[in-house]
Design a protein around this nucleic acid. Sequence first.
DNA 1: ACAAAAGTGTTTGTGGTACACCCATGG
DNA 2: CCATGGGTGTACCACAAACACTTTTGT
Lengths: 269, 269
Amino acid sequence: MERTGVDIDGADETAGGTLVRDSGARPVGAASGEASKAAHEVLAVVFQIREGRLCVLLWRRARPPFEGCWALPGGRLGAAEGLGESIRRQLAQKVDVRDLTHLEQLETRGDPDRHPHGRTLATAYLGLIPADIDPVIPRDTRWHPAAEPPVPEPSAPEPPAMAFDHAAIVGSARRRLRAKLSYTNVGFALAPPEFTMSQLSRYYRAALGHDVAATNLRRVLLRRGQIEETGESVPSGRSGGRPAALFRFRARRLEITDAFAVLRPPAGC
Amino acid sequence: MERTGVDIDGADETAGGTLVRDSGARPVGAASGEASKAAHEVLAVVFQIREGRLCVLLWRRARPPFEGCWALPGGRLGAAEGLGESIRRQLAQKVDVRDLTHLEQLETRGDPDRHPHGRTLATAYLGLIPADIDPVIPRDTRWHPAAEPPVPEPSAPEPPAMAFDHAAIVGSARRRLRAKLSYTNVGFALAPPEFTMSQLSRYYRAALGHDVAATNLRRVLLRRGQIEETGESVPSGRSGGRPAALFRFRARRLEITDAFAVLRPPAGC
DNA sequence: ACAAAAGTGTTTGTGGTACACCCATGG
DNA sequence: CCATGGGTGTACCACAAACACTTTTGT
């Protein structure tokens, strides 16, 4: 969490605004605001580790605004849908929803001019897919490396840039994933059901962006009770080497495994 | 994160939903959803430490729904307002906005029937106020201890319960604050500009819900560079004792001071 | 002198990285 | 028997909690 990469959320705004003082009963929406209804969309940053790299699922917009740009999957919130429900429904059009091993709310963006065609709020989710599957995706969608300059490859004719504020949202998602990898068991959502430690360390490397020693990763995750041996092992490759033991995550739901590193309650409690 | 008290966000939803497959261009909001506009409100969980307890600012609803219940301050999002901008404006009606030392987005709730009078999404913020001030608040608002059973005191005629899903939101806010106290410098937002270590440890105790030894807190925060001595000290009280040194937070903006406790990048990088 | 509160020094323990070494297999 | 990759053992280190002890004040 929060750790590096731990999200700072919308903490970048500073004071400003006037002091209005009224008192007494006030119906839920009063004040200077013209009580308005706004369009609301739900987006998802779906990550998967592919070929050793953390990738995001994006689709290419076929019409303005941002025609030809890459955008996060998602769409308008239905009239009677919950937010999580909505993003699951919408992703079913892009990815088989059964493959989503984890989904959590990320942030909501409400900048009045984030959408050129009128006020639109967007609630973004972070979704994860295990590395071993290759879901069928529509022709206009593609997996993009989520590397630092999120998508825009300069001069290349192919990917012009990302639409709306979606690049920033991908950034939040990466930070969130990175943070949670260090104090929760989210790894389960990136890895296949069974894996060797060197495979797992490659997934971690891809998601964290830096080297992860398989040997230490093993001990850390074992000590925390995140993973366990299946008892089986895979035969060594053509080039020899000791056969690798297979592991699995003990839980397949998000758990916090490294609660307070500091300021923890006194021992006798 | 974190750690206990670290937020699990909306991770409690599991798969379900059908597999729809269409491809080709699709305008931002297509699919089964009837593209609708929904009311959107912005709420704030404003915490302050008062008399050694973590308290939330609540106001009492004067009319249905939830007449007589306690609710979070906030209201409808204005037509041309950003989310953060809106909550700042709305809080200006309850608390002098200059006193808010920290504000961050918490979560967005969109359960279709969270509001009996029609679909209403709510984006909640976490706001903090330093312990040394006592802002003027309207007659219908009050500071409530944010203790475990958030507000509802059984049998007492006074506070019946909390309106809507606000009790759950207060819970999220407490977990978030608690988590961030252990890996960021949020303490600055709860403490007055200058403080002694035993005062600060009382603030931490109130926010975390468990004892915090002043002696260790001092070392931890000094090592992390969060606080520094002002050079001054306060005279001891009537009962004697060594005069306490005054400290201040070195930064008054949120910073992550305890990035990755684990899985940190290899030393040479 | 004594009590009270603040502050320091020291011990102990834990959890994590780094690194050398041992193990099992294929050629 | 050697190269290759997996697995273990161990040294080291940073950080933090616990607690005894010292310092500085008021009465």
